[in-house]
Design a protein around this nucleic acid. Structure first.
Lengths: 337, 337
DNA sequence: ATTCGCTGTCGAAGCGCTTCGACAGACTAT
DNA sequence: ATAGTCTGTCGAAGCGCTTCGACAGCGAAT
């Protein structure tokens, strides 16, 4: 293992000079710099991460806490994780992967040990146990998601309220009057993750303004659950022609069942989904959808943290404006309805 | 930030004693141990990761290199990542998330800087550029996947050869004679990731022994590609009654198209998939499938590394035996065929 | 010619921990 | 009673780096 001292000796300078070449924190003459850089290359030197962290009290690592559950939003989480890792590298940071399993203890461990300089938390609940710890520590953090109170915190999320409103507006514009919302599994509402409620609130209040009727049904994914849910919906509101789906594992079952019942999409029934673009494009009908901006959230989170670690920027709640992409699953409401 | 020295002072012992309490590397009297542990709790002490890494040349971190691509096997990769993170924590390790983007440089960086004690590599190609580096370094590593030559390496993977054979055996036992294999996208074969070829080889040679006919067609996911592929298959082999699908994004399109063409599953046509259980269960027909043992691979990789870091165990190639779960998509071949 | 302020370099201290050798004291075996 | 063996604890060295203050050398300003 090559050390700073060896590089220094090889280049005929002192260790501190090499360090300054590396960090750029003091000016170094061009000739010296080149000589040092040459030595670094020749010897294949890599600074020791531990020593660096100890001396500078900076680990150049960002911790990313992902939910343990793999039953929901897997592609979204993956996309966020990859965006975080990629963006972090761009700024010279590495990413430590934590699972939600450890809960608040993980936060304590990371802040206490100096393992990471900052944290990104996903799957934030309204009254998340980790929040008090984040507020106490002076280590920067970003939440992906929105808790009940955000004072002293930095958050980024899709504006789910606006998303709900946007979906219903689109359907209204096409002449649909009776809207059904296929929501997340009941467990999601019980866990108080917030985004599902926010979507619903935004959707309902816009629907009220536009004079639409809304029926909301939580739904586990899969064919069996969807069969029951759909039957109930058409029972209660036979005139339903617009669907908003927020559960990606309900999308394909819904389409299959509608087909099976002889209801054509989009001629008889329109469907808007809130899901990653990939799901929308790969479905059996290309879905009009509002995408979940996973990449953008991941990138924003890292960039905010980097800025904060550099002494720039403050707390901040960013709600990303939803964008609705029209594809093949929505069309004018049928004349007879 | 609380340091070892402060704990030592608080407990009225020397710093080294506290260190030995923490590591258990020397015997400590019960009374002293308890006093120290008490102080640790009272002060909320967490050892500084950097200092520890520097002094012990052990970071207690395992690096996990995941592919950057999010177009394939996302749930599998996520499951592996989570299994790795969870298992690692169980053994006192944390996980550093690297993307494949950096390629061999990432390997150099990690081994050179002592950022991690060991690495797990996913998405291994037959002639992977990272392999020479792994062979050089004395840092333990595990590949998830199988390169062309495995000498001096540790690998774990599903036994895709046996998987192919198992699928074809199952169909043969049910009386199917004409089998079509829906493979991965052509790009996968060109990238030489190996598993697709191995599946095919195993499948073909078992089919030959059993006297079955096999037609193999690579296939991009999605409905349009599947439509073309399926048409060609029934064109060339109208008597095809058994399908083996290795591309999870082709599964649902295939089922939909078969339904649409009036071919009932499993009465007219049987389908075996090679995919995560979750996909198999959530499909519109519950699929007979061979699962990809993501958790098991992740866990094995970590446990092997931990053993190696503790000075136990050596190089080793582990191929996990496939298990076929019979669900609702396979049945006896139709009488007339 | 003297002073001043740069620029570029060096030496040394110290970050918080692990680990090695030393050793006091309590036992056991002779 | 003596030597030998443990057990439990301590002090000190050092891991490889960053960073602070010091300072030599130089050109610009007086």
């Amino acid at each position: 293992m090559v050390t700073l001292a060896e590089v220094a000796q090889h280049a005929g300078v002192s260790a501190s000079t090499v360090s300054y070449v590396l960090s750029g924190k003091r000016s170094i003459s061009t000739t010296t710099r080149q000589r040092v850089e040459q030595s670094i290359r020749e010897l294949g030197y890599h600074p020791n991460a531990g020593a660096r962290a100890l001396a500078s009290s900076r680990s150049n690592i960002i911790a990313l806490m992902i939910p343990l559950r793999t039953d929901m939003y897997v592609p979204v989480m993956m996309e966020i994780a990859i965006a975080v890792a990629t963006t972090a590298r761009l700024h010279g940071y590495d990413v430590l992967l934590l699972t939600g399993e450890e809960g608040p203890d993980a936060v304590r461990r990371v802040t206490g040990s100096g393992l990471a300089d900052a944290m990104i938390l996903m799957d934030v609940e309204l009254e998340d146990e980790r929040l008090p710890l984040l507020r106490q520590t002076d280590q920067p953090s970003v939440l992906i998601g929105l808790p009940a109170t955000t004072s002293g915190l930095t958050c980024v999320d899709l504006d789910f309220g606006a998303t709900g409103a946007l979906c219903v507006e689109h359907l209204a514009k096409l002449g649909h009057r009776d809207i059904a919302v296929i929501g997340e599994a009941p467990a999601v509402y019980e866990r108080h993750t917030g985004f599902a409620e926010r979507t619903l609130d935004g959707l309902r209040s816009r629907a009220r303004e536009l004079g639409l009727r809304v029926l909301h049904r939580p739904c586990e994914g899969g064919y069996d659950a969807m069969t029951v849910t759909l039957a109930r919906i058409f029972d209660e509101r036979p005139g339903t022609t617009g669907f908003v789906v927020q559960n990606e594992s309900a999308v394909e079952p819904l389409l299959a069942l509608l087909r099976q019942q002889g209801r054509a999409v989009p001629e008889d029934v329109s469907v808007v989904a809130i899901c990653p673009d990939q799901v929308a494009v790969q479905a059996s009908v290309r879905l009009t959808s509002v995408a979940i901006p996973a990449q953008e959230m991941g990138r924003y989170a890292v960039e905010h943290l980097v800025a904060k670690l550099d002494g720039r920027g403050g707390d901040d709640v960013v709600l990303i404006a939803p964008e609705l992409t029209v594809r093949a699953s929505t069309g004018p409401a049928p004349a007879g309805s």
